[in-house]
Each structure stands twice: as C-alpha cells, then as structure tokens.
Amino acid sequence: MRWTTALGSLVVCFASSGSAWADAVPPPPDNCPPGKVPVTDHRGPRCERKAPTNCPSGWRGVVGGTCALHQCTEDAHCGDDKVCREVSLCYKQETRYYTHGRNDHAPVRGPELGMGPPMQLDPPVTEWVAFNVCDTGSACPAPAECRPGKLCVAKESGSSSGSAAVPARSMPTKADGTVDTRPSGCGSGCAGAPAGSLPGAALAAFVALAFGLRRWLAAAEP
C-alpha cells in the first residue's frame, strides 16, 4: 500500500499549492518557457499559457490558454475590431456562498467589491451565469436556459461601419455538461490550448503508471 500513500501525498501537495488569497504578492517571474507568460495575482507569481488569438466570434482569449465569453453592454467595451451585439446566451443557475469580488471575465459587473480575500455571502446569492452561446440545441443542455444577452462579436471583414458582424458561435459541450473552452483546431501541445498545466499532466501520467503497475503485479501473481 506504500504506493497509495505516496500518491495521496502527491495529490495533497498539488491540491494545496497556491491556495492563499493574498492582496500583496511577490512580482511575476522574470522568465517563462516559450508559449507562457509571467503573471502574478492573488494566487502568487507563476507562468501561465498565453491568451489564445483564435477564439470564435463572441469569445476572447484569456491568459491560461482558454476562451471566455466576451460580454458587453456597449460597443466601447469591445475594442476596434469588434462590436457589441444582442445574442442568445446559455445560462445556468449558480449559488455562491463566498465572494472574492467582481467577476473579472465580465465587463457587465456585479455588485461585489474588489477582489480581496473570500468573504461569506449571507444569505447566499443565486444568479444566472452565461457560459455558452445558444446557436445549437446541444450547446445548452437542460437545466440551462437560453436567454438574451450581449457579446462582442467580430466585425465582418471590409465592414467599416460595424453594421455587419460575424455571428457568435458556441463552443462544444463536454460529457459532464461543461463547455470545452479550448480554441478549436488546437491539440494539447499548442500555445492556446487546454487548461491542463504541466503538474496536472505529470500527475495524470503518474496515476496511469501506478495503476498499470498495480495491474501488472496482480496479473503476475501466481
């Protein structure tokens, strides 16, 4: 059973790293491997995947290598190459018991204060949170609901007035109902892809190896 103890320790080690929520933090690292950028925030300094530049219309790349819905209320939120358009968004209900402050993915801002340490919400807050575009039936499985919203969408190339826009597109839904926010056409090795970090991949490989070894040992026993 020694291997299970080792594995348990490893899991605890990975799970516990970066759990603090400090306001004054060390600076970002001076150097990062190719494809990653130095960042520092409440979780401290580290290297993260670059924000992808190939997200579909209605989404924007975020540091960490994924795409996030680019919500807006007016064109000014969208930059020069995008416009704010009404779209049907897929919403799910979420109950929050704690807040770290505002949702930094959304320029449509909630009532929270800054992004300080976690504060208990009493009573808890239940709200509708947009997580995908409603353009196909499979993009918004129940109990999620399609409701109106606004997204920054790409301007049609050659359209100077901004009246013509590329329709927002949904991103694929995984078996567990969550959205795969990795940019399309990206394998696990490309700069803009998967949220999985190197420690995560190493842990997965270790677990697979441990299980394989256990099976092999069981099969080898007389």
Partner: peptide, 11 residues
C-alpha cells in the same frame, strides 16, 4: 482589463 487588484512591490 480584468487586472486582479493586487499589490506587488509598489505596483
């Protein structure tokens, strides 16, 4: 955009 609201060495 979306700056985290932290302090690092005077920044």
């Amino acid at each position: 955009r979306g700056g985290p609201g932290v302090l690092t060495e005077g920044a």
